[in-house]
């Protein structure tokens, strides 16, 4: 599935990302590249900075240092008189529209139906007609298996259904890249599967995905590459067969041992 060759430009490039919250140095220089259509799983102990790294990609968190580049375009910043400065809000918003994000706690718009959740951004941000947006949203809800729940409000949906709506909502903007932040951690074990199935399908369709997860089975089956983070740095990375079954670092071994 990994269609990346050495010459091809990566879809996403993170260079030397640092993030400090006051004295707390959370990310300590992260370099990561994702080829188009690649699925990368981010694993690591709690507090290792997985969420922070994902949020630095779409600038929900502004990196203290370093850059994120999507298809050659610098994210959230631009060069003015030789210095990097923050992008104006409008342009930052346009960049974010090209990156889908799925949250641990779904964050569906509670005052809107499932269908309205999906159509909101296409209509408001992309300027799509209501008619067209509804047609697309209908198809997306069908593809996540929720066609019959289109007119339900989030409070009427189960956790798994909410998360599938959230995935459809992110896909409605036809993103180039999807970020998942522990999409199944808030779900009951018996419901986890329905969300992972949707993600698996998405991976097969060729979506580029960066997934922070504790689901090792999903990582083993779906990921092209597994990245293990600890203490704000990438400790090791490689194909799942290598990182998950024969890790070369002591810290990775300890982390995996604790999971099993």
């Amino acid at each position: 599935m990994s269609a990346h060759s050495a010459t091809e430009q990566p879809l996403l490039r993170l260079c030397g990302i640092h993030k400090r919250f006051g004295d707390n140095h959370v990310l300590r220089g992260v370099d990561l590249e994702l080829a188009a259509r690649e699925v990368v799983c981010l694993i690591g102990p709690s507090g290792s900075g997985k969420t922070t790294l994902l949020r630095c990609v779409n600038h929900l968190e502004v990196p203290t240092e370093g850059r994120a580049i999507l298809q050659g375009e610098l994210l959230g910043q631009y060069t003015r008189r030789g210095r990097l400065v923050s992008l104006p809000p409008r342009e930052l918003a346009a960049q974010r529209a090209a990156i889908g994000m799925v949250f641990q706690h779904f964050n569906l718009f509670d005052h809107k139906t499932a269908l309205e959740n999906v159509t909101e951004a296409p209509i408001q941000v992309a300027g799509m007609s209501k008619h067209e947006a509804r047609a697309i949203a209908g198809r997306l809800l069908e593809s996540v298996g929720l066609a019959e729940k289109a007119h339900a409000y989030p409070r009427q949906l189960s956790g798994g259904q909410k998360q599938r709506v959230a995935i459809a909502r992110a896909l409605a903007m036809s993103p180039k890249l999807m970020l998942f932040d522990e999409p199944t951690s808030a779900l009951d074990p018996e419901i986890v599967g329905e969300v992972l199935d949707v993600m698996r399908k998405l991976a097969h369709e060729g979506m580029t995905m960066l997934v922070a997860t504790h689901e090792m089975t999903f990582a083993r089956d779906v990921a092209d590459r597994v990245v293990f983070m600890d203490g704000g740095v990438i400790v090791e990375q490689g194909p799942p067969s290598q990182v998950l079954t024969a890790p070369s670092h002591e810290r990775t071994k300890r982390f995996l041992a604790r999971l099993l």
Partner: peptide, 14 residues
């Protein structure tokens, strides 16, 4: 909830 603003921003809203 703060997550509502984050989800909106992530979708490209100002």
């Amino acid at each position: 909830d703060e997550g509502q603003m984050e989800a909106s921003l992530a979708l490209g809203m100002t």
